[in-house]
Structures are given as C-alpha cells and as structure tokens.
C-alpha cells in the first residue's frame, strides 16, 4: 500500500518544486514589472501586463458575482420554501459541475457576438463570474447557516425588520467568512483558462486595457500560448516563470482565505 501511496504523496511536492526550480532563473523584479514593448512572439519578456490582466479579470468577475451570490443566498435563507431550497441546492451543485469551457462557449456566442461586446474584459469577467458564482453562493449559504437561529429570532422579537436583521445582525457576524469565500473565488477565477481564452484575451499588445470593452492579456493564456507554441528555451523559461507567479498568486489568495477562516472560526 505504501508503494501506491508514495507517488501520490511525493509527486505533487515534486511538481511544485520543479516549477519553482525552473522559474528561478527568470524570476526577478524586471520580469514582474517589465511590459512587452512589441507585440510579436519572443519579444515579450516582462509579464506586467499579463499580471494586470489576470487580476483585473478576476476582480471584476468577483465584483459582478457578489451581488448575485448575496441576493440568491439571502433569498434562499429568508423566502425560499424547503422545496425551492432543495431545487436551488441541486441547481448550484450542478452549475458547479459544468465544465468551465461550456460557459466560455456560451459567452462567446451570447456576449461576444450577440451583445457585440467583442473579445473584451467585460465579456470575460461576466463568463468568469458565472464560473465562480456557485462557489460564492454555496459558501455564503454555509456562512449564513452557521448563524444561530436564536439570533434572528431575538432580532425579530425586538421588532427588527428582516432587512435590519440582515444588515445589523447577519452581515456583521459573517463578513469575515464572506470575505473568505470571496478570496477563494478570486483564487478560482485566477486559475481558469478555458472560459476566458476566447472571450477576453489576446496574446499581446495590451498593457492597460483602456476600457472594459478592450481585450486583455492574462497570465493563464500567456502560459498556454507559450507552452503550445514556444520553440526556444527562453520562451519556455518565461512560461515557467509565469507559471510560478500564477501559482504564487493563487496560493496567496488561498492562504489569505485560510488565515481569515482561522480568525473567524475560533
């Protein structure tokens, strides 16, 4: 059994080490802050614009998803009948199971073409928002469930309206956990490639998107293109460097979320 367990235990660690080992030669401040002065292959050495693009997309996606997630979760807690609750539960679990590329496909048709938003920050953010939505909703639900019923009952006994209960009692008590969920959603949004590949990104040529209708470059697609088409060692080392940065970024949000969880969960 140990024979079977060992690869499972060791290989992941090896993988992480390997990525960073490969990335070390290129990782430096210039790599992070440099921007592509050209637009072709091989001239892009810095990844600043990719970094910006990734973060912008993920942030926007979360901003778009938050109101919907909160709204849905609050509806679930306050209005939904048990039947509706079951249905909603099933729905969100299903939504979570649908491969992200399917959302990308829909985004390409509806947002990029039908709404004529083009390949843009906005299209990509909306698609990503749908991808992270179930995660946010489920997290919010769990959070709200943790609030003891006596709390709300005491609130309504004091004559507080439902709105006031939510604002005064629920939110202050659970904002830490909600933030945790948000950070996890950020991490998720940062690690998706398929849904934004056709809806939001170009290979290069954008440093700061000048409107929400302009395309962006992202770390994810940068790595993808370099991996697929890179043909000289320099490009591949850039890809490893970008990969390390992306992993660190995702891990950072994940760690922050964990930290908050500990703070809030005591």
């Amino acid at each position: 059994m140990l024979l079977l367990a060992l690869p499972a235990l060791l290989i992941p660690t090896m993988v992480l080490c390997y990525i960073f080992w490969q990335a070390v030669p290129v990782l430096n401040w210039g790599f992070l802050s440099g921007t592509a002065d050209g637009v072709g292959f091989g001239v892009t050495e810095g990844i600043f614009s990719q970094l910006v693009g990734s973060l912008l997309l993920a942030t926007m996606a979360c901003l778009i998803a938050i109101p919907f997630a909160l709204g849905t979760a609050l509806y679930y807690r306050t209005f939904a009948t048990p039947g509706q609750q079951r249905l909603m539960n099933a729905m969100f679990n299903m939504l979570q199971g649908i491969p992200p590329i399917v959302f990308g496909l829909c985004g390409l048709v509806v947002l990029v073409n039908l709404f004529a938003w083009g390949v843009s920050l906005l299209s990509g953010a909306v698609v990503l928002a749908v991808v992270v939505l179930p995660l946010l909703v489920l997290n919010t639900l769990v959070t709200l469930e943790r609030i003891p019923n006596e709390y709300s009952e005491a609130g309504s006994a004091l004559g507080l309206t439902k709105g006031a209960i939510i604002l005064r009692l629920w939110l202050p008590r659970s904002w830490l956990q909600l933030l945790t969920g948000l950070l996890l959603a950020m991490a998720r949004a940062l690690s998706e490639t398929a849904p934004i590949m056709f809806t939001a990104t170009v290979f290069s040529g954008v440093v700061w998107p000048d409107s929400i209708f302009s395309p962006v470059t992202t770390l994810q697609t940068h790595i993808f293109y370099l991996a697929q088409e890179g043909n000289d060692p320099l490009l591949i080392s850039i890809a490893w460097g970008s990969a390390a940065v992306l992993v660190l970024l995702v891990a950072f949000f994940g760690l922050l979320a964990r930290l908050l969880q500990k703070l809030g969960g005591n």
Binding site: L9, P12, Y18, I19, T193, Q220, A227, Q228, V250, G254
Partner: peptide, 24 residues
C-alpha cells in the same frame, strides 16, 4: 501540513499542468 500541501496542489491552475505535461 500534508493536507495543506494537497489543498495547495488542488489550487494549481490547470494551464500550469498543461505546461508541465508539454515540457516534462
């Protein structure tokens, strides 16, 4: 710590695995 590293691994973006697959 084992669990922690596993959760970290679960968060590694798929495109990074792609890079790994392609070049390793």
């Amino acid at each position: 710590s084992m669990r922690f590293s596993m959760e970290l691994m679960a968060g590694v973006p798929s495109v990074v695995y792609g890079l790994l697959g392609m070049w390793v």
